[in-house]
Design a protein around this nucleic acid. Structure first.
Length: 581
RNA sequence: GCUCCCAUAGCUCAGUUGGAUAGAGCACUGGCCUUCUAAGCCAGCGGUCCCAGGUUCGAGUCCUGGUGGGGGCGCCA
């Protein structure tokens, strides 16, 4: 019982490993095939399929091997019953007393007692990374929201995380912007909404340059002036960055997203020449067609031999590959991370493979992870600033919140104005987030108002509602959930047991979601938990006068654990776990 | 030309890395509010997992080939 806080799957797997060793089926240092949750409750709570593999090694029938394992697995307080099923499945039914004690212990532990697997480990994550002078649109949502959720999950597992917003604040777009600024700016419009005006100017430049190619030359010249530190250009650049960052911050605050450092591309600008020279000196980079490239061969990765990384243009300017390399080096020197994650559009996959391969040549040994999310599809097309097929992020949030507000006003008319506003904000922003987070990052996502604004089914309000109901029960009972001391939960009803099992599994789901860098794994779990709780809620009354004090406490203890688990999961997904709706 | 990804219910999507009778939500049909919030619950309907082979105790998942769709590929980021 002292191991009660270890992961269920871990404890069971240790048990079956010991059984196999004891039976002489494997060497003492063998790694067991782990127990996994069953898909069907009739097959127990967890199953292990190791017998099939062992049978091959032992040259015995799988069922025979499974029978040996089952026999030696008994006499464990966490197991009520073990079954040998089908051709060789080992099914475990957890004992209710053990499950109850595990649930109780977790519900009073910080963060449900998730194992601190990241203690002493450091990770740098790069996400959101918008460009200066451009309004954030729905296309920025995925990187920002998925990156934030991954950051939160790593942190709760004990990792030291450096969330770095690699802003696009340097490069040729500033030359264009300055040219456009001098020619076409509307001061009144700029005073009203600076970023909108900058975006208009940028687009105006693009259109004008089609007919007047000499504008491109001018822009190039302006870019050079800026890069050489000419004071007027520098002042404009700083102004553009200032107003853009102010707007980004407003959006981030609204989304509940934050960063530890915001080191944009410009931060690395003075290192680029030296970096390229150094790479040339070390023979890692070579001159090619007037430019400088880092060539690769087959040993660097499939297909890379035909795709060198370009790090200096023939006009001498650096590129984003150069900046990304400098950024890698800075991160390694500053934080000595074990992993570096990038959450970007999947279209940058090749670029990051190149950057990672070049980093290896420089002797960087960190574990790189590129999370390439699928594209956002809008009415059959892909969101693009150029085509104008974009939705302003703030407008999307406003629309979602306004829609939530009409529902709140109707469903919770008794609440105060400020409370309804707070609920609408949490529901609206949460709705935007959860539609994204409940989908696998790697697949394309369809922007769909109907789905995003829905209030029924697998939606943000459904999750928040489940949590609010837990708190509602405590309010009704006159109990302060902060000081409540749970006892053993009452698991006699099927719905109660199903809820308990999901709560107890939460920590292993958090670990799985984090390792896979897939917040949707956690989202799927929290929907299942909320659904299970809703079933319990309608099947079992908690505050009923006919109930014995023991059952009442047992049910309250379960509700308490659900509230803890929901709050944790919602927080990890970046949703605000409301206590009242 | 090279390369990567995708195809699962009418729709939008999951599918714990090879496990048992493939799931969820929406939509549709029927039922449930004198009792802790109906933003809810219960039940039903709905499938050639793109096609053809292969690997093995077992394939939506792995391999090969094909069909269809999409992405990327040195002077943008």
């Amino acid at each position: 019982m002292e191991d009660v806080m270890k992961l269920v799957s871990e404890l069971l797997t240790e048990g079956i490993r010991a059984a196999a060793v004891q039976a002489g089926l494997v060497e003492p240092d063998a790694v067991a095939e782990p127990f996994v949750p069953t898909a069907d409750p009739r097959h127990g709570d967890y199953q292990c399929n190791w017998a099939f593999r062992l049978a091959k090694i032992a040259r015995k029938a799988p069922r025979e091997v499974a029978a040996i394992l089952v026999e030696r697995l008994g006499d464990n307080p966490m197991i009520a019953r073990v079954e040998l099923a089908g051709p060789g499945f080992v099914n475990v039914f957890l004992s209710d007393p053990w499950l109850g004690e595990n649930l109780r212990a977790r519900s009073v532990a910080a963060d449900l007692g998730v194992p601190q697997v990241g203690a002493g480990r450091t990770m740098v994550i790069d996400y959101s990374s918008p460009n200066i002078a451009k309004r954030m649109h729905v296309g920025h949502l995925r990187s920002t929201i998925i990156g934030d959720a991954i950051t939160r999950m790593y942190r709760v597992l004990g990792w030291k995380v450096i969330a770095d917003n690699h802003i696009g604040d340097w490069g040729t777009q500033f030359g264009k912007l300055i040219v456009a600024w001098e020619r076409w700016r509307d001061d009144a419009a700029y005073a009203e909404d600076p970023v909108a005006e900058l975006q208009r100017l940028y687009q105006a430049f693009g259109e004008a340059a089609q007919e007047q190619p000499d504008l491109i030359e001018r822009a190039r010249a302006e870019t050079v002036k800026l890069q050489e530190g000419e004071s007027k250009s520098r002042a404009l650049w700083q102004e553009f960055c200032r107003v853009s960052l102010e707007e980004f911050d407003r959006v981030y605050e609204r989304l509940g997203v934050s960063f530890d450092v915001v080191l944009g591309e410009s931060y690395y600008r003075d290192r680029l020449q030296r970096l390229v020279d150094d790479l040339l000196e070390r023979g890692i980079a070579v001159h090619d067609q007037g430019a400088v490239i880092v060539p690769f061969d087959a040993s660097d990765g499939k297909g890379l031999s035909k795709n060198p990384l370009l790090i200096r243009k023939s006009d001498g300017a650096a590129l984003y590959g150069t900046t990304d390399l400098a950024t890698v080096l800075h991160r390694v020197e500053t934080w000595a991370p074990e992993r570096v994650l990038y959450e970007t559009d999947v279209r940058q996959a090749l670029h990051f493979r190149q950057v990672f391969a070049a980093s290896r040549k420089l002797g960087v040994e960190v574990e790189f992870v590129h999370i390439g999310h699928g594209m956002l599809k809008l009415d059959g097309g892909v969101a693009s600033t150029r085509a104008g097929t974009v939705l302003n992020l703030v407008d999307v949030l406003d629309t979602a919140v306004a829609h939530a507000r009409t529902v709140v006003d109707q469903a919770s008319a008794h609440l105060s104005e400020s409370e309804r506003a707070e609920i609408a904000e949490a529901v609206g922003v949460g709705a935007v987030k959860i539609t994204d987070l409940s989908q696998n990052p790697s697949t394309d996502i369809h922007f769909d108002w109907e789905r995003m604004l829905a209030i029924e089914g697998d939606t943000a309000p459904y999750l928040l509602y489940a949590n609010a109901r837990c708190h509602s029960i405590f309010r009704k009972a006159g109990l302060d959930i902060e000081t409540f001391v749970p006892g053993l939960p009452d698991l006699t009803h099927d719905t109660a047991r199903a809820v308990a099992l999901l709560v107890v599994r939460t920590p292993e789901v958090v670990i799985a979601a984090t390792e896979a860098a897939k917040p949707n794994v956690l989202a799927t779990h929290v929907f299942a938990l909320a659904r299970a709780f809703a079933s319990f809620y309608s099947a079992c009354r908690v505050l009923d006068e006919d109930l014995s004090a023991e059952v009442r406490l047992g049910r309250l203890s379960l509700v308490y654990a659900v509230a803890r688990s929901l709050s944790l999961c919602l927080d990890l997904l970046g949703l605000v776990p409301l206590r009242r709706m």
